[in-house]
């Protein structure tokens, strides 16, 4: 399938309310530029991210999914991000085995003060998704 030249990837970002969401906010308020390709869904904790959210996003045709939370040891709920990491890790590995490009599912630790890091993560991910192209995993014509 031909890729239109002006095609832009769409990313869903599941951001923890205490760190990464605040980090994204900081990137905005400090006028740090990053691509508008990400749509953000605020979650109370990265531990809230059910692998089903990730799959559903891919099923709906989003090109990439970003899961982001507090750094290890800094979870507002003490252990939520550690639990998130286990779920995220098996999901990522398993999708890779099935044939999904691992760059479509990314995770990051971004604290409330890391506006720059958040901008960098989104910029990098957008760039990578442009390289691999649109998500046609669940398209019917393949």
């Amino acid at each position: 399938m031909e890729q239109r030249e002006d095609w832009e990837p769409k990313i869903v970002g599941f951001l923890c309310k205490w760190c990464s969401y605040a980090g994204a906010d900081l990137a905005g308020t400090s006028r740090r530029k990053y691509p508008a390709n990400i749509g953000i869904i605020k979650v109370p904790c990265s531990g809230r991210v059910d692998p089903l959210f990730i799959l559903k996003a891919l099923r709906l045709g989003f090109d990439g999914v970003l899961v982001s939370g507090c750094h290890p040891g800094e979870c507002h709920y003490l252990t939520g991000n550690y639990r998130a990491r286990r779920k995220f890790a098996i999901t990522k590995k398993f999708l890779e085995y099935l044939g999904v490009d691992p760059r479509r599912l990314q995770g990051s630790w971004v604290s409330a003060s890391e506006g720059d890091k958040f901008a960098h993560v989104v910029t990098e991910m957008t760039k990578q998704l442009k390289e691999i192209g649109a998500n046609r995993l669940f398209a019917d014509d393949k």
Partner: peptide
């Protein structure tokens, strides 16, 4: 059980 537990250091290379 797997999902009720964690180690401080694990699977870090999968997260950027």
């Amino acid at each position: 059980p797997l999902m009720t537990h964690y180690e401080q250091e694990e699977a870090e290379d999968l997260i950027g």
